[in-house]
């Protein structure tokens, strides 16, 4: 992985994922002191995402690394009309690694071709957010003890939700079964179904959230945004059908865990939060370890 950029979840192999997950587990157990001492890492956030940025910066600083960069494009030269090409070229001179988030799709791939240092994509519009996917995989393995042969429910906006698409691609290396729960307007795009078909992975589509919920090992929730619906009436009709309520957990498997990339709106009832099956807040904490593992792998330190 040394010196390789991480732009898309498909840039890394199954072996790469596993290596990163193992390292993250090690880091969670014990933080290696000062592994990033002497390294300068740029965090370029062309659009604000406080949650993701803090997770990266905490990951870096806990290992003794230095952070430079900006947290939104207002505070950067971007407003003066500098091209992404020029910004990346300049920042390459000042840093050992670039972490970037940008509202335009494909921006991270482009940056990785311009930069003389590796680039980690922390979200490029609706396209990719691979560190979130690795964090999701870490959470799955940590709670289930394995990645293989799991029953995974993907719930909510399956059409536009980049996290579910990346998770589907990544988990497909581990023989899962998928259940897609979404309204008609937000169904899983056919290219992903074709992909699963080509891998011989079973999937089921349903509108009724509660159906077969007793089989789930993982319920992965996503936000359903009103703007996604062409007909606002349709949104009003379906929004409640996709809410996870406490009484739905009654017959679920004892080890089942609920994940959510956060922030949530109302798709998980508050009363689910104190269930031991709710894992979404802990999930976010795992981000620090996974990001440390990714950064150190790419810098060739582990």
């Amino acid at each position: 992985m040394k010196n390789r950029s991480l732009v898309s979840i498909t840039d890394f192999t199954k072996e790469d994922y596993l290596k990163i997950l193992d390292k993250a587990a090690e880091f969670e157990h014990q933080q290696p002191s000062d592994l990033l001492r002497g390294f300068v890492i740029a965090t370029l956030f062309f659009e604000p995402s406080t949650r993701t940025r803090l997770s990266f910066e905490s990951a870096i600083q806990r290992l003794g690394g230095k952070v430079i960069g900006f947290s939104d494009s207002n505070s950067s030269s971007v407003v003066k009309g500098e091209t992404l090409r020029d910004t990346i070229r300049i920042v390459s001179n000042y840093s050992d690694l670039i972490v970037m988030r940008h509202p335009l799709e494909g921006s991270a791939r482009f940056a990785s071709e311009i930069a003389t240092v590796p680039v980690i994509n922390a979200g490029d519009g609706a396209n990719q957010h691979p560190t979130q996917t690795l964090l999701d995989m870490y959470s799955i393995r940590k709670t289930q003890g394995k990645l293989e042969n799991l029953n995974i429910f993907l719930v909510g906006d399956l059409k536009y939700g980049r996290t579910v698409h990346s998770l589907l691609m990544a988990m497909s290396a581990f023989n899962p079964k998928f259940w897609f729960v979404s309204p008609d307007e937000l169904k899983m795009p056919s290219e992903y179904k074709l992909f699963l078909h080509s891998k011989g992975i079973e999937y089921f589509e349903q509108k009724d959230f509660a159906e077969n919920i007793d089989l789930a090992d993982i319920i992965y929730m996503t936000r359903v945004q009103k703007e996604r619906f062409s007909d606002p009436m349709e949104y009003e009709k379906t929004k409640n059908a996709l809410v996870l309520k406490k009484n739905m957990l009654a017959n679920t498997r004892p080890g089942m865990k609920i994940l959510h990339p956060l922030p949530r709106v109302n798709e998980i009832s508050i009363d689910v939060d104190d269930s031991e099956k709710a894992y979404y807040f802990t999930q976010a904490l795992n981000g620090v370890y996974i990001r440390q593992a990714i950064i150190c792998s790419i810098l060739g330190l582990i």
């Binding site: 091209t83 799709e105 494909g106 482009f110 519009g125 396209n127």
Partner: peptide, 25 residues
Amino acid sequence: HEKITTRFTVIQKKEVALKCHYCEK
């Protein structure tokens, strides 16, 4: 949005479908 040469992988030839190397759409 920026001066970049486009690049596509041809994923289907009959009814041509092109996958963008950058945005992956």
